[in-house]
């Protein structure tokens, strides 16, 4: 999908009229994100073993949560990935926070769109043809604490400069970690189990965060 559509989608755009000037400013903000961002990814693929209904991989990584059992039910391997757009983008966003708030929100949305795209590209480049959706700690019954294990297994600090704060937030801010099942039927994402379920702006507008209106499941 076009990164501009995706950015507008994150901004809650539902067809409002834009002046040429506004349209140009959105294009500029997106261009600046693409210029400043330094996308980096790291990933590992592990074979899944199942013993007495427990899932395990040859790494210090606890996958025994019902959301992950469901996600990985048909998978033979599991892809663990992390992606980031780098610290310079964080700095630039902080800069605009001081001088231009509308530029800030557009760039923030564009960066969110871009980092998802980076993960998509990584998955496309890997030699697998069937994936589940990308699951991130914090959804369903999987605690954010699992981020710590992912960060250690992937050595994200050394490889891509991504670390966690004590509150388990990722730095740089525009970073993603994901757990993806490889093989078997594709598991589809749903909003149940999302921490934002109750007051999600996307749902109020009749969309979801992970697809634009055209792509909405019927």
């Amino acid at each position: 999908m076009d990164i501009k559509n995706e950015t507008l989608h994150y901004l809650g755009y539902t067809g409002q009229s834009l002046t040429d000037e506004e349209d140009r400013r959105i294009d500029e903000a997106i261009a600046e994100v693409i210029e400043v961002a330094r996308p980096m990814t790291v990933h590992r693929v592990f074979p899944l073993s199942r013993e007495e209904k427990r899932l395990s991989v040859p790494a210090e990584l606890d996958l025994n949560y019902s959301s992950l059992h469901e996600l990985l039910a048909d998978a033979g391997d599991v892809l663990i990935l992390a992606a980031t757009l780098g610290l310079e983008l964080d700095r630039r966003l902080r800069y605009y926070a001081r001088i231009d708030a509308s530029r800030l929100v557009i760039m923030d949305a564009a960066a969110s769109a871009l980092v998802e795209r980076v993960c998509d590209k990584l998955q496309e480049a890997l030699p697998f043809d069937s994936y589940t959706f990308r699951f991130s700690p914090g959804y369903g019954d999987v605690p954010l604490l699992l981020q710590k294990q992912i960060v250690r297994v992937l050595e994200t600090q050394k490889r891509i400069g991504m670390t966690l704060t004590r509150s388990l937030l990722m730095v740089p801010q525009k970073s993603i970690t994901g757990i993806v099942g490889i093989g078997g039927a594709s598991k589809k994402r749903s909003c149940m189990g999302c921490a934002l379920f109750e007051n999600c702006e996307f749902r109020k507008r009749g969309t979801v965060c992970y697809a634009t209106k055209e792509q909405m499941p019927e």
Binding site: L87, V151, Q157, T163, L164, T165, R166, L169, V171, P172
Partner: peptide
């Protein structure tokens, strides 16, 4: 080696 957390102002340490 590194502490594993990024220092403020970009991080929180």
């Amino acid at each position: 080696g590194p502490l594993g957390q990024l220092l403020a102002p970009i991080g929180t340490l």
